[in-house]
Computed example of a mutant assay.
Amino acid sequence: MNRIVFILFLLLLSSQAFSQASASAKVTSRATVIDPIQIDKTVDLDFGNVVSAYTPGSVVLSPDGSRTAQGVQISSNFPGTVNPAEAVVTHGNNNYAITLPESFILYNSQNPDQQLSISNFVVLPDEGTISDVIKIGATLHLEANQASGFYTNSSGFNVTVSYN
């Protein structure tokens, strides 16, 4: 009899231990689709007219359009076209990052062996709710006795914006 009670007791314990082998919960799902980030260039970067010197120099063009010369001359009477680059970033209410190159090369249109380099890009966002106007300045570097001429690079440089 003890043996039967013991077997019944073991059966009772084992059924309690395995009485709930699984459980489930109802999970809902959601997604929010946001507009893709977009950037549209409106103005190209233009340092204007620069007078070469006997020593290396540079021209710093700020995002606000002001420029300063170091080791070279710029003329306020004959500045040429001076513009920071400008673009419109459409981003909804989402935060984003701006990526610019480390440097960029301009080539003399008459002599491609003559080059100017651009570096130290600076961005000034004019923030809005759904879109921002960004302005980009940089530093133009000239060699001593830089050959005169029109310097450009038709491939342009990339300004990349991406959501954070």
Results as ranks from 00 to 15, higher is better:
M1R: 13
M1Y: 09
M1Q: 15
N2Q: 09
L8N: 10
L8V: 07
L10H: 00
L11N: 07
L11Q: 14
L13F: 00
A17D: 03
F18Q: 04
Q20F: 12
A21Y: 08
A25I: 08
K26F: 13
S29R: 13
R30N: 08
T32Y: 02
T32D: 05
V33D: 06
V33I: 14
P36S: 13
D40M: 06
V43I: 08
D44T: 08
D44Y: 11
D44V: 12
D44L: 12
D46G: 14
D46Q: 13
D46I: 12
F47S: 02
N49W: 11
V51T: 10
P56Y: 01
G57V: 00
G57M: 02
S58Q: 09
V59T: 02
S62P: 00
S62T: 10
S66C: 11
S66N: 09
R67F: 05
T68L: 06
T68R: 11
G71I: 07
V72W: 04
I74K: 08
N77M: 12
N77Y: 10
P79T: 07
P79M: 05
P79K: 10
N83L: 11
N83Y: 05
N83H: 07
P84E: 06
A85G: 07
A87H: 02
V88G: 01
V89Y: 07
T90A: 09
A97K: 14
A97Y: 15
A97L: 14
A97T: 14
T99L: 06
L100T: 06
E102L: 14
F104C: 05
I105C: 01
N108A: 13
Q110A: 13
N111H: 09
D113M: 03
Q114I: 09
Q115L: 07
S119I: 02
F121W: 11
F121R: 02
F121K: 02
D126T: 03
E127I: 08
G128I: 01
G128N: 00
I130R: 03
S131Q: 12
D132E: 03
D132I: 04
V133T: 06
V133M: 02
I134Y: 01
K135R: 10
A138Q: 07
A138T: 07
A138F: 08
T139D: 05
H141C: 01
L142K: 00
A144F: 00
Q146M: 09
A147K: 12
G149L: 06
N153S: 15
N153I: 15
S155Y: 10
G156A: 11
F157W: 12
V159K: 04
V159P: 00
T160V: 13
V161T: 05
S162Q: 10
N164Y: 10
